[in-house]
Each structure stands twice: as structure tokens, then as C-alpha cells.
């Protein structure tokens, strides 16, 4: 492993400055559960890791009147151990409680999961279906990017040299909103999704006003499927969910590898789309 420096940033500006100084040879360090493993495996050659866990902004967990702000360094456990967040964002609990084991969840968070930009990330789909926006700080100020536009390829994102994901923000769900995430893995825990689907619906009676469906592990990036749009205005019925599942499958472009085959992944997307829509609708009805 190439020897790197450890920089503990106390502010966003300090972090941005440290990242900018080293360009491609620096990475932010949040949970470390991916970045340290990859540095050790020689995936990146780094001169510096910039610890962002001591910056107030990246640690924010704020349930406002209209917006939920989640700092980029907030570890998974702070989501599922917070009753209020758990009640309002059960879909985030779905994902936060299955990323790694308890040890990983003590450190890893959705921000790191996002920046890691893995096609199989469990955390990105749920953010997409919650209409989350990424707040990115950089040498030239702050910009915002929709989560679905954040990843640009396997392990690649819109984050440029010197830039730092500070927080994700998303609207507080209105009444009639429900979301759910489910992945398929051969083991019950400690595994990588062969396929994952996050679904959200805004329900009015039995009519789906709007829906979002995001897919994991079936393309080079997490995918915001068009299947959600097709559900808009339709009734929450098994037939419509099946149609949405077919539409979701059509949006995938999976590969066959050690974790699963193209056929298996497409099939699983269908199953999980149906299941997460059912669960999202259930939650939407509870949230009335």
C-alpha cells in the first residue's frame, strides 16, 4: 500500500483545501469500510485520506419541517436508532440495517455508500426514491445534484478533484407516501446485492399519484427506472405492479458474473419491484 497522510479536517473548507491539494491522489475518509480496503488492495494510490467525520456539516441529522438533512459522514446506525427518522423513513432503515454487519454500520453511512458509486450499492436506490439531492462543496463553492445523477459509472461519480459530498437532503414525506427497499443476497447478511430495488409511491386513496423505482446491481450505475412514471395515475393493484415489474426489467442492462447471471438478475428485479411496491403501498397506507 502506498503510504498516505491522514488529515483530520475540522471544517468543510479545510477538507476541500486538503482534497484540492492532492487532486486525484486524495479521498475523503468517512466510514473507511470501503476506502481503506480499496487502498490496501491497490485499487487507488493515495497520498492523503481526509477524515470528514469531525466536520459539523457532514454529521448533521436534521428533521426539519419540510426537509430531512443527512450529513455525508453519518453512519448507518444513527438512522435506525433514531425513532423519529425510523418512523418517517423506514426505507432508509431497510437499507441502513443491511449494509454490512453491526460493525460496518457503526462507521459506514449512506454518504460513503453514494460516493463509492458501486452499481450494487444498497444505499443509493432508497435515496433516489426519496428524491434526495446531494450537496457538494468544492473549491468554487457549493452545488447541488440530484442523487440519480450522481453516479456516472462503476466507482465513478460527478465528484471532481477537491470536491466533497457534504450532505444529502430530501423532502419530509407527505401523508400517503411510502417507500421500501429490498435486495436479494444468497446470505441473509454480510453480502452484496445480486439485485436490489427501492420503490416509493405517493398514494391518494388507491390511486398512485406518483412513484419512483430505483434498481441496484443491474447496470453500470444505480438506475432510476421509468417504471415509476408509468405507474402514475394508476391504481395500486397487483396487475399494475406486475406491469411495473416488467417495465423495470426492461430498464436493466445487467452482466453475468460470480454473483449472478443476467437472467437471474432480471428475474429478481421483477420479483423485488413487485414486493417493494406492495410494501411501499402498505407503508403509504399506514402513513395516512
Amino acid at each position: 500500500m502506498h503510504p498516505f497522510e491522514y488529515v483530520r479536517a475540522k471544517s468543510v473548507d479545510e477538507a476541500v483545501a486538503a482534497l484540492a491539494k492532492h487532486g486525484e491522489r486524495a479521498r475523503p475518509l468517512a466510514g473507511g469500510t470501503d476506502v481503506l480496503v480499496m487502498a490496501r488492495a491497490g485499487r487507488w494510490e493515495l497520498d492523503a485520506l481526509v477524515d470528514i467525520k469531525h466536520i459539523p456539516e457532514t454529521n448533521i441529522v436534521e428533521l426539519g419541517a419540510s426537509e430531512f438533512r443527512l450529513g455525508a459522514a453519518v453512519p448507518c446506525y444513527r438512522i435506525y436508532e433514531d425513532d423519529e427518522i425510523s418512523a418517517k423513513f423506514p426505507c432508509l432503515v431497510d437499507t441502513a440495517s443491511i449494509i454490512g454487519g453491526i460493525q460496518i454500520q457503526s462507521r459506514a453511512g449512506l454518504g460513503g455508500n453514494l460516493c463509492n458509486a458501486s452499481p450494487s450499492a444498497d444505499g443509493i436506490g432508497p435515496l433516489i426514491v426519496h428524491h434526495a439531492t446531494c450537496v457538494i462543496a468544492g473549491p468554487n463553492g457549493t452545488r447541488e445534484v440530484a442523487v440519480e445523477d450522481f453516479c456516472t459509472g462503476p466507482g465513478r461519480s460527478v465528484i471532481g478533484n477537491g470536491e466533497l459530498l457534504v450532505e444529502m437532503k430530501m423532502p419530509i414525506p407527505r401523508k400517503g407516501f411510502g417507500a421500501a427497499y429490498e435486495r436479494f443476497t444468497p446470505r441473509n447478511e454480510m453480502d452484496i446485492a445480486i439485485a436490489g430495488v427501492a420503490s416509493s409511491v405517493q398514494l391518494n386513496g388507491n390511486i398512485i399519484e406518483s412513484a419512483r423505482i430505483a434498481l441496484a446491481s443491474v447496470g453500470p450505475t444505480p438506475i432510476l427506472s421509468s417504471a415509476g412514471d408509468q405507474l402514475a395515475g394508476k391504481e395500486a393493484t397487483a396487475e399494475n405492479f406486475s406491469a411495473a415489474a416488467q417495465a423495470a426489467i426492461a430498464d436493466t442492462s445487467p452482466i453475468s458474473d460470480m454473483r449472478g447471471t443476467v437472467e437471474q438478475r432480471k428475474h429478481l428485479v421483477g420479483v423485488l419491484t413487485r414486493r417493494t411496491l406492495e410494501r411501499a403501498v402498505e407503508r403509504a397506507r399506514e402513513n395516512n
Partner: peptide
């Protein structure tokens, strides 16, 4: 040494962590 076995588990500030994934 990559956060998948827990043999290196320690408690840090009240939370268990894989010490191989911490500096």
C-alpha cells in the same frame, strides 16, 4: 483485513467496529 469476518472487532466510543477498517 477487509471488514468481513469480525475477528478484529473492538469497541470504539461505545460502538463495535472492525479495527481493520479504522486507522
Amino acid at each position: 483485513n477487509d471488514g468481513n469476518c469480525g475477528a478484529c472487532t473492538v469497541n470504539m466510543d461505545g460502538r463495535i467496529v472492525d479495527s481493520c477498517c479504522v486507522l
